[in-house]
Design a binder for these strands. Structure first.
Lengths: 183, 183
DNA sequence: GGCCAGTAGTCTCCATGAGACTACAGATGC
DNA sequence: GCATCTGTAGTCTCATGGAGACTACTGGCC
């Protein structure tokens, strides 16, 4: 059960750790990747101070380690940081886990899908696991909607629609050919 | 155009101001209303320090004013705070305005609908205005989805589904009889 | 009289994040 | 030669939001 016993990290910290697992890197490179106009920043941006603090925290937790201080040809020296084996295992477990709440789909699930996409990995297992997790939630909400009155009905209706939208999204993601090579 | 020239307040500040417009109140009563187990806290909770800071800021901006320090029979004296005329106008303008981004539906629109519900006001104008605002966004996203490739397609697909869910929610809210008195 | 529960409000502390600041290397200008 | 500009690399400060502890006042109870 890789979803058990994961350390409690913020989304930014998980994201940074996963990027270190792709390849050893340093703060400045990560800030460019995760800036608003960066490659991953289109999906989820992480401000500079948060990245450097994440690196410090990951090191303090033994999930990452500074392997070398590289003299750069184009500026000051930079600290190359790599994930540890503990860090790699934690990252792999996190990456494979569906999110618990629908509100975290936009942030956490999309980040996981983006990371899998970068790695060229198959997103299908994660998509299926996420579907299995949300399907019962959707059913419970619809049951509740049938009975809800007053403003609780409004909130429940909203939750029903958004969970249903997530399920449709997950289904559509299972058929990538449809629009990628339409016809 | 009531949506023009509104002061820049946080959601918590708008919410507190609107509640003061319903009736003069004091910090502690608002904290109970907006606590996790409170009436409005089910929709949107506001932590205690944020409420008291909101009251201070609203007073500083001239949107609210302390009208009386009431000796309470069951505890220390409390400051009764009321909205000013300027505050009332601002609150009415805000309450009638649709939100600009789909991500703010859950927070801002639901709060507005909850406030209208409490006041017994008709939500239809706000629902229609919100629909008018999001309909072109939905169309633009679908056009973009047809061309998007790679991971941009994933993000666009997600946005399409969630905006579509909001539109369905807005439509369903226009037919309140359906489940309230299902026959 | 002392203590507890509820009321009313303030306080400190931590995390997030915007944006300024330091500092180093190479290119450019005069 | 050296001043300055651009890009690299990282740190610092400050404002805001929010969790939770703390103060302080009142009436009720043992």
């Amino acid at each position: 059960m890789p979803s058990q016993g994961l350390p409690r990290l913020s989304l930014a910290e998980w994201l940074v750790l996963c990027l270190l697992c792709e390849a050893p890197s340093h703060g400045f490179a990560l800030t460019r990747l995760l800036a608003g106009d960066g490659e991953l920043g289109q999906v989820w941006r992480v401000p500079k101070p948060v990245i450097y603090r994440a690196l410090q925290r990951l090191e303090a937790m033994g999930l990452a380690v500074t392997v070398e201080v590289q003299p750069s040809t184009e500026g000051p020296a930079r600290s190359l940081i790599d994930a540890t084996n503990v860090g790699r295992k934690a990252a792999a477990g996190w990456l494979a886990s569906p999110v618990s709440h629908n509100r975290d789909i936009r942030s956490e699930l999309l980040v996981k899908l983006a990371l899998l996409d970068r790695a060229g990995a198959d997103p299908a297992p994660l998509l299926d696991a996420q579907r299995d997790k949300l399907q019962p939630v959707a059913e419970a909400l619809e049951a509740r909607l049938a009975e809800a009155t007053g403003f609780e009905r409004t909130v429940t209706l909203w939750r029903c629609e958004t969970v249903a939208a997530t399920l449709r999204f997950l289904d559509a993601m299972r058929e990538p050919a449809a629009a990628a090579t339409a016809g």
